[in-house]
């Protein structure tokens, strides 16, 4: 518990990808924002891996034009963007976030923290929609406008959507699993909080017909790396992400999915 006893805590444990993080605040309004934003991912019964204490400040405290930067200083991760400033110590199992009372800043901090955690375990966050069908997870990756949300919208009723924007990939005992995330794109809705082993990664390309083509591993790695979220540019982090992408491509089939945007594309995804 980071707060002194005189302050009332409104803490929320948010568990994404099997990693519970306690977000600590003394502001009841911000707690309500968190509970709304992360509905389906609140797990009050989970023992948090670490805590992030949020200190609410006025928006004008920050340099609004500043792009996200992540670096190591005094054995802590430091993160700054135009709307927040944060530090996180994996060794101390705690961190602190300065931001205004909005859901977007803490969302970005959580994404960054998860990418840092996953990198050391062979996993990653990737710009991709993902879904579970017949007990298998499928990822649909691409840059903006590639069709991630379109594929998700076209999913038939037997498909469980994990996210339409940011997929969560974890390596567990040499297998890769996709987890649902609350990190939504145009849908604006959190994905289902479930996980499944990944059967394939499809790199999206809009076309006049539906077709699946195999990709050379080197092409798959290049294209996957373009879509993996990573914020820290230290050499060891870059190396970890690269090695994670290569190991993923060696273990999981990667295809190009050319698709015409109607529901027939899902006939190919089983």
């Amino acid at each position: 518990m980071l707060f002194p006893k005189s302050e009332e805590a409104h803490n929320v444990v948010i568990e994404i990808g099997g990693l519970p993080i306690e977000v600590q605040t003394t502001d009841a309004g911000f707690e309500r924002i968190l509970r709304g934003r992360y509905r389906g991912y609140i797990n009050a019964g989970a023992a948090p891996e670490f805590a992030l204490r949020v200190q609410l400040t006025q928006p004008e405290t920050f340099d609004a034009d500043r792009d996200a930067e992540v670096w190591v200083e005094d054995r802590e991760w430091r993160m700054e963007r135009g709307d927040f400033r944060a530090r996180w110590s994996p060794a101390q199992r705690e961190g602190q976030v300065f931001q205004s009372a909005n859901p977007y800043s803490i969302d970005s901090v959580l994404r960054i923290v998860h990418t840092l955690m996953l990198a050391s375990q062979g996993g990653f966050l990737v710009h991709a929609s993902s879904a579970v069908r017949n007990g298998k997870a499928f990822l649909f990756s691409g840059v903006s406008e590639a069709g991630k949300t379109t594929i998700a919208r076209l999913a038939p009723s037997d498909v469980t959507l994990l996210t339409d924007e940011t997929s969560y990939v974890r390596k567990v005992d040499w297998r890769y699993f996709a987890y649902g995330t609350p990190f939504a794109g145009e849908f604006g809705e959190p994905g289902a909080n479930v996980s499944a082993p990944i059967a394939a990664l499809y790199l999206l390309k809009k076309a006049d017909e539906n077709r699946i083509d195999a990709l050379e591993p080197s092409v798959a790695v290049r294209r996957l790396l373009r879509n993996i979220l990573f914020f820290a540019h230290q050499a060891d982090m870059v190396r970890q992400v690269f090695e994670s992408a290569c190991a993923f491509v060696a273990a999981v089939p990667v295809f190009q999915l050319s698709f015409f945007p109607d529901q027939r594309v899902w006939d190919l995804i089983r």
Binding site: E216, P217, S218, V221, R222, L225, H233, A235, V238, R239, F242, E243, C246, A247, V249, A250
Partner: peptide, 21 residues
């Protein structure tokens, strides 16, 4: 960083993330 996949070797510069196959 360097990895061999199939017949190819993929190399990435950790300085600027440039990739060579």
């Amino acid at each position: 960083a360097c990895s061999t996949l199939g017949d190819d070797t993929i190399i990435m510069s950790t300085l600027d993330s440039t990739i060579f196959v």
